[in-house]
């Protein structure tokens, strides 16, 4: 019978055995990235928590005090410090926090959210392994995304600090514009390989000089 609770001393070893969903593409991302044009990288193992709660209920208010607010409408992003909450639906949110916030690394975010929900109506679910994170940056990042996303990504419409769930390269994903020319893409883990390769392919043309 295997040990279910690993002793603290083996924690470091366990973490090194983790494989992120797009780990096999790491070197491809490095060679495919074009410095100062468009760069792609996987940000692995971010802590993500799925929230289902009515933001106007008591439980919603308590959770908002933990996360630093819950966004009110489509595209909304709220949060405080490293913890960010993305709007997914009228009563559905995704909390994105650094890897260290996960309880396996000694973080207390998920526990705090569960305690805030208490007996209230809703759910707090650890979804850290559900999605991985791609970071697409650079002046050509929008052009790359526009090849496979039907949203209007022009900065006058899609402003920094908004996140929308949509399709990118026919893959359902959440697209979060963190800054100008900087996007975070959250595909489900099983789609990460495809979407990573798709993005690399979309980036390839910018390696060559522009044909007038």
């Amino acid at each position: 019978m295997a040990e279910t609770a690993a002793p603290a001393t083996t924690r470091q070893k366990d973490l090194s055995a983790r494989v992120s969903p797009a780990a096999q593409l790491r070197s491809a991302f490095e060679t495919g990235s074009l410095r100062g044009v468009v760069e792609l990288a996987e940000v692995s193992f971010l802590t993500m928590v799925g929230l289902r709660v009515d933001r106007n209920s008591d439980a919603g208010q308590r959770i908002a005090s933990v996360t630093g607010g819950l966004p009110a409408a489509c595209g909304g992003v709220s949060g405080s410090g490293d913890t960010t909450v993305l709007w997914l639906g009228p009563a559905e949110f995704l909390v994105v926090a650094p890897m260290e916030a996960h309880e396996s690394l000694g973080g207390d975010l998920i526990q705090a959210l569960k305690e805030a929900l208490a007996g209230g109506e809703g759910q707090v679910v650890d979804l850290s392994a559900n999605r991985t994170t791609f970071e697409l940056t650079g002046p050509r990042a929008r052009a790359v995304l526009e090849k496979g996303c039907s949203l209007d990504l022009h900065p006058r419409v899609f402003k920094a600090g908004t996140a929308l769930s949509t399709e990118i390269g026919n893959i359902p994903a959440i697209l979060w514009k963190t800054r100008d020319d900087s996007y975070r893409i959250f595909p489900r883990a099983s789609f990460a390989d495809f979407l990573g390769r798709w993005l690399l392919d979309a980036m390839r043309e910018y390696a060559s000089p522009e044909v007038p």
Binding site: A73, C74, G75, S150, L151, D152, V157, F158, K159, T162, L164
Partner: peptide, 16 residues
């Protein structure tokens, strides 16, 4: 399917 630019209910950041 030429779209009229209606959608007055579109929230901030959503596309037309």
């Amino acid at each position: 399917t030429s779209s009229a630019p209606a959608s007055t209910t579109a929230p901030e950041g959503a596309t037309k």
